[in-house]
Design a protein around this nucleic acid. Sequence first.
DNA 1: GGCGCTGGTTACCACCTGGTCGGGATTGGT
DNA 2: ACCAATCCCGACCAGGTGGTAACCAGCGCC
Lengths: 208, 208
Amino acid sequence: MTTEVTTGPGARAGGYAKGRATREEILDAAVQLFGEVGYHTASLREVASRVGISHPGLLHHFPSKAALLAAVLERRDEVDGLAIRADLDAGHDYLDALSMLVERNASRPGIVQLFATLSAEATSPDHPAHAFFQERYRRVVARSVAELERFRDEGRLRPGIDPVTAARLTIAVMDGMQIQWLLAADTPESRPDMAAALRAQLAALLTD
Amino acid sequence: MTTEVTTGPGARAGGYAKGRATREEILDAAVQLFGEVGYHTASLREVASRVGISHPGLLHHFPSKAALLAAVLERRDEVDGLAIRADLDAGHDYLDALSMLVERNASRPGIVQLFATLSAEATSPDHPAHAFFQERYRRVVARSVAELERFRDEGRLRPGIDPVTAARLTIAVMDGMQIQWLLAADTPESRPDMAAALRAQLAALLTD
DNA sequence: GGCGCTGGTTACCACCTGGTCGGGATTGGT
DNA sequence: ACCAATCCCGACCAGGTGGTAACCAGCGCC
């Protein structure tokens, strides 16, 4: 179906205040459930039930399941993007901002699980979020590469490592650590610290 | 349901040659399909159809869907384990053996997708493969830690990096690169080399 | 040559899925 | 007070799900 990240009708601001509030509740519940069981397995009825409405009631706000998914992803990236920009404006490094993002994520297991599950699912070419994740990775890799090229030019990137590889490794670490972190949810004593791991990774890639 | 990795009745060797062959075909098809769409979404009918039998025919060999999943995971780890041991016996390093494993995986997208999708899915505590993946990560982390401790004792681990963190980062890189690799399946020119990435990661963690 | 186990089949079950339809409240501007 | 837009629901649909029951063909051992 390849329903792109076009915001479905009814998902934008507008309508009554009640409706807008319900839409937010739906998105929260959808993030939670998609994270718990994945997009395919999650049912509209379950999402609707968690919000306290019927499933046609949900479909009134989001015309299809794929549209709901698109809205969820869109909102998430929007929120994260704003937070990162705020950190940058506060004078932080881009890589520092990434660490901070990871640190924030450590307090939102639902969202972490959502993206871990979804990015793996969306690996299939016909997944509704396939194009979204392709574009997302393209963007974040490009951004990280640009940043690491600056580091290299300042001589702060460890010799023998090119910026592209360094960028991909860093992003891979973020994704991979999420799985280890999620799997160890019930054994806190052996649960890895995602942010610390990312900082260690950057320390291994940089010279200072 | 937490169907552990107990081999279901009928999944072990035995019966007629025809039956054993069919079981292998089923496992191959299941690996493929689970990889394509995930465990939850995959249907027994689809797996059966790819083997050319009916879906109760499949259930004759594997008494439930979870049992089929268990058999798939079990066989995969068995095969990989043997290959790694062979590489070790050939005089290779454990970390080199990991690179070789990754290199082999690069020619089996179905299996890569299977484990990427499944390890994310199995993050949920009530997923049939949850315990399997917990144990799997515990095992491979422990193994890598032991190896990296030897490196540290030989002074080949970069100072400031402890073996546990290094092990987790390495495994995270393997998992994370899989997603980037799978997502770039249709853009070969920008597709990362998983094995090269792993080697670069190890180069960043070690001193030689 | 009979006989039990193996490898399937067709038919069926209860249940869940996303989505549609028509109607009935509620809301808020005029 | 009116009226249209918005919000939401119950009922329904076709289709897919894992699993079961009953049955039958053929293989191979006694």
